[in-house]
Design a protein around this nucleic acid. Structure first.
Lengths: 187, 187
DNA sequence: TTGCTTTTTTAACCTATGGTAACTTTTTTG
DNA sequence: CAAAAAAGTTACCATAGGTTAAAAAAGCAA
């Protein structure tokens, strides 16, 4: 079941037989979170990665009494505080379930084991590379576009996300206040 | 000679014997650029990565009649339009030598070959992961900090870069105009 | 349903940064 | 080395988006 979901999600990037994904899922536990559950707290080290089966999660950074949202991830994608997972250091990022969520959890120990296999090294290389590309695109958007352009493009690219996720999170993901987002939406 | 430079640069991340780096440099050609040479033009596909031996390079995106700088890279680091290299698609990014530069050039074909070796798969995984971490930090800085904070932190972290690189590039890297940077510097 | 909490909207005012333009300094080039 | 081009500075006004505050709407628990 789950191995098929993973295969489907990754086939566009590289094809691996379903038995290989089965081995992957055998290393995972299924976990679930309630809406607003904190998955990883600020100041801790990330010890897992998650493949979201259903729901949505976000990664946040607190700044005095409010916060910014660095990423919002929907089902059929990997999710984690990748920075902390990669550096194996504590990070001040917080990961939160933004909806009732079920996910496959894989431990860092198992990730490290997998990285040594041909399959794992390709999987995580592709994961890291596409995360980089996505982050660079976010950097470009922040540097070159107005808040209004960023909102319109997000809306076009992922209208479902805008329906499902609270505006305060979307606003902070776009780098603006909820007031500004509201102002933009009025148009 | 060059293999030692590479070993020294990468030992903090993972240690490989110098003979392995020798094999790496055997796949490279040494190239040099004059200041302001365009290494890869907008609209082309990146066909190489570079390890900068001496000098500095930047990666830029044009926006009507001006531009933003996505990254400035000094000697002893890898440099490329990674996005285009990864996706193997054209990108509108432009890479430019910001100083007289000498570098080791490795072709995408050789990179792909290397990725299949144990050494290469670790090297490029670590490269992609640390590029991601760096990009995420840039995203955080853009979302949470003022231009003045970003300037002061860059100055603290890399005072040499501020000496060597033209202010117009630094300004665009920080996401501001040269006029704003000038205003900040006056303090 | 009712009442309480959280989220979203609206509005008035403020600030950091952008745009334009004139001027000065530095760098490049014949 | 002088002339020309590029880069940096300064001053002015314009504006996107922040801040504060409060009302309205939506969500949620009892």
């Amino acid at each position: 079941m789950n191995e098929l979901k993973l295969k489907t999600a990754f086939d566009p990037y590289f094809e691996a037989p379903v038995e290989v994904w089965k081995k992957f899922t055998d290393l995972c536990q299924q976990v679930s979170f309630k809406k607003n559950d904190i998955i990883k707290q600020s100041g801790e080290t990330e010890k897992n990665a998650y493949f979201i089966l259903e729901g949505a999660c976000g990664i946040f950074l607190w700044k005095e009494n409010n916060y910014v949202c660095l990423d919002i991830v929907l089902e059929n994608n990997f999710f984690a505080d990748h920075m902390s997972l990669i550096t194996a250091k504590i990070s001040s990022l917080e990961t939160i379930a933004l909806e009732k969520t079920t996910a496959l959890r894989i431990s860092k120990a198992n990730i490290d084991k997998l990285k040594k296999s041909p399959f794992g090294s390709v999987l995580f290389l592709i994961g890291a590379e596409s995360s980089f590309v996505e982050k660079q695109q976010q950097q470009i958007d922040l540097l070159m576009k107005t808040a209004e352009q960023r909102y319109n493009e997000l809306f076009k690219k992922n209208p479902e996300l805008i329906q499902r996720i609270a505006q305060k999170h979307i606003a902070s993901y776009l780098g603006i206040t909820t007031q500004s987002l509201s102002r933009i939406r009025k148009k």
